[in-house]
Design a protein around this nucleic acid. Structure first.
Ligand SMILES: [Zn+2]
Ligand SMILES: [Zn+2]
Ligand SMILES: [Zn+2]
Ligand SMILES: [Zn+2]
Lengths: 144, 144
DNA sequence: ATATTACTGAGACAAAGTATCGTCAATCGC
DNA sequence: GCGATTGACGATACTTTGTCTCAGTAATAT
């Protein structure tokens, strides 16, 4: 039952709800992820959890992604970046190409347009991906 | 001058216009790419140009991408896929997750919404990425 | 024809994972 | 509580999608 294992971590709660185990290793990894408000890469997490195997970090990230508590996005060159999924509802991200800071955004207009496009498309739409690349205020200010 | 080297290949013409050389190796690679109406992966091209080094294929693809005669996109899992850029104008792609077939699409509404979003964004928009994933008619029909 | 420069192939290296496997730990049944 | 079962772990090899280096070769310039 949840009460015995309850944590204040949304990441851990999410995997527990799906029947995965909460282990000390996963606690540590979840902690490192939750300390990354602006997004993170898998290797950054590896660097912050010494003693934990790289494969285990990748397995945990994959798990958190599967249960939809972290978002995976792509930089302009395709390099992956992750961020904690704070909302839950369908959304997209702005990513600063200078510092990597990630912010969520929702644009219902875009979702409606996508729905309307379905008529023009050969086949059935099964999903979409969208990222907006920005230079954030901090990077703009420091680039004088 | 162009006349001495003129080809019927948009890919080769594009790199020649930027001062790169047209070599027999690049002719072969461009030929293989232009035989791929539904998109291709780099490794598929490697497989179709025996005798050409893998690094050379990747260098050529990068070059064609830089001069904007091929488009690079991402499958849902992030795996890269390429397609010949037949239009030139800004556009996005629908990609069939069954067979990989790529089609261009333009949606001026989306571009306008993106422009409007700039006001809500922390910083300056520098670019965006969007892909629509579909199951194409052919794959729908053969999945009975 | 020679000099210059770009291009090429081989192979090492890199980033972002995934697969295998023997060991170990968390949970379940009693 | 205690052993059995199942899942998780770490190490390491392997895969994919490239990039880098370097010596040799082809294309252009004069
Ligand atoms: Zn998000
Ligand atoms: Zn959306
Ligand atoms: Zn295109
Ligand atoms: Zn666009």
């Amino acid at each position: 039952m949840r009460s015995a294992l309850a944590t204040d971590s949304d990441l851990l709660n999410a995997i527990e709800d799906r029947g995965y185990r909460i282990t000390s290793t996963r606690r540590v990894i979840a902690g490192a992820i939750e300390e990354s408000p602006d997004g993170f890469t898998a290797e950054q997490i590896c660097g912050r959890v010494p003693g934990v195997g790289r494969a285990t970090v990748y397995r945990a990230i994959k798990l958190f992604h599967e249960v939809e508590v972290i978002c995976k996005m792509a930089l302009p060159d395709g390099a992956p970046r992750y961020a904690v999924d704070t909302g839950g509802r369908h959304h997209h991200h702005t990513i600063c190409t200078g510092c990597g800071a990630v912010q969520d955004f929702r644009a219902s207009t875009i979702e409606r347009v996508l729905k309307a496009i379905e008529a023009d498309v050969d086949g059935q739409i099964t999903g979409h991906r969208m990222e907006i690349y920005v230079t954030c205020q901090t990077c703009l200010a420091s680039a004088d």
